[in-house]
């Protein structure tokens, strides 16, 4: 580890530490939901390590529990992760001069919180080792918090009776993510369209209704944004 890397890491950690507390309830809820749908602690922690993504985990758990087809679960996870393509594109310049293997690691560890915290410095600081440290320290810290508190959640779920419907916590978590997004008018329209179509098209073969609903929601939001822009 070069001194520059260490200096960047220290700075990144210092900036991110207070914000990282926000991860704790998410990790606990994700852990409790994984326990609630009937995963063993090994299965739950397996998912937590392999996937390492709150939204993708919480979004797919109801689908896994309902026994939906694998392709639908995977496509849904991918759609929930599409925002990362935008984040990844925005950060890409910050990884100029960083070796390939470390970039894969950085990519795997990308989270919403670290993206929001690191974007500006990743694009402005000159030294690639400093930037990598600044990015990796909060990312690894997030990873650790995520594993520890998800494990606590899984263990807590084990001591709660089945009839308490803990799996509904995934739905509540998705609502908590959705509500602040829907404060923007086009985003609200995307959500209402997506939700309504998913209900109306539930009878479509191969569960294609969910995919049509998502595409319809994206189209509605995009169209509303265009229309709003022209009105101004």
């Amino acid at each position: 580890m070069s001194p520059n890397f260490r200096e960047g890491a220290r700075e990144g950690f210092r900036v991110f530490l207070p914000l990282s507390v926000g991860l704790v309830p998410w990790a606990l809820v994700t852990g409790m939901t994984m326990g609630g749908v009937g995963f063993t602690p090994l299965q739950a922690m397996g998912m937590n390590v392999i996937v390492f993504a709150g939204t993708a985990q919480l979004g797919t758990l109801p689908l896994i529990a309902a026994g939906l087809p694998v392709w639908l679960i995977v496509v849904t996870a991918f759609v929930l992760n599409l925002r990362f393509i935008i984040f990844s594109a925005a950060l890409a310049r910050g990884f100029h001069g960083v070796p390939r293997a470390e970039r894969w690691l950085a990519g795997h560890l990308l989270t919403d919180g670290v993206f929001a915290t690191c974007l500006e410095k990743m694009l402005s600081h000159e030294d690639p080792r400093w930037r990598l440290g600044y990015y990796l320290a909060p990312s690894l810290w997030s990873w650790l918090l995520w594993q520890v508190f998800a494990f606590c959640g899984v263990m807590a779920a084990g001591s709660i009776p089945k009839g308490w419907s803990l799996e509904f916590m995934a739905t509540i978590a998705l609502i908590v993510l959705l509500v602040p997004m829907a404060r923007l008018r086009p985003m609200l329209l995307a959500a209402v369209t997506g939700g309504t179509l998913a209900v109306l098209l539930r009878g479509m073969p191969l569960r294609l209704g969910v995919i049509v609903a998502i595409v319809g929601g994206i189209a509605a939001g995009f169209a509303a944004e265009r229309w709003q822009g022209k009105g101004r």
């Binding site: 925002r83 995307a190 179509l197 994206i218």
Partner: peptide, 10 residues
């Protein structure tokens, strides 16, 4: 718009 549409659809 993908995350909002997908979350609502779930």
């Amino acid at each position: 718009y993908a995350p909002a549409a997908a979350l609502a659809a779930i």
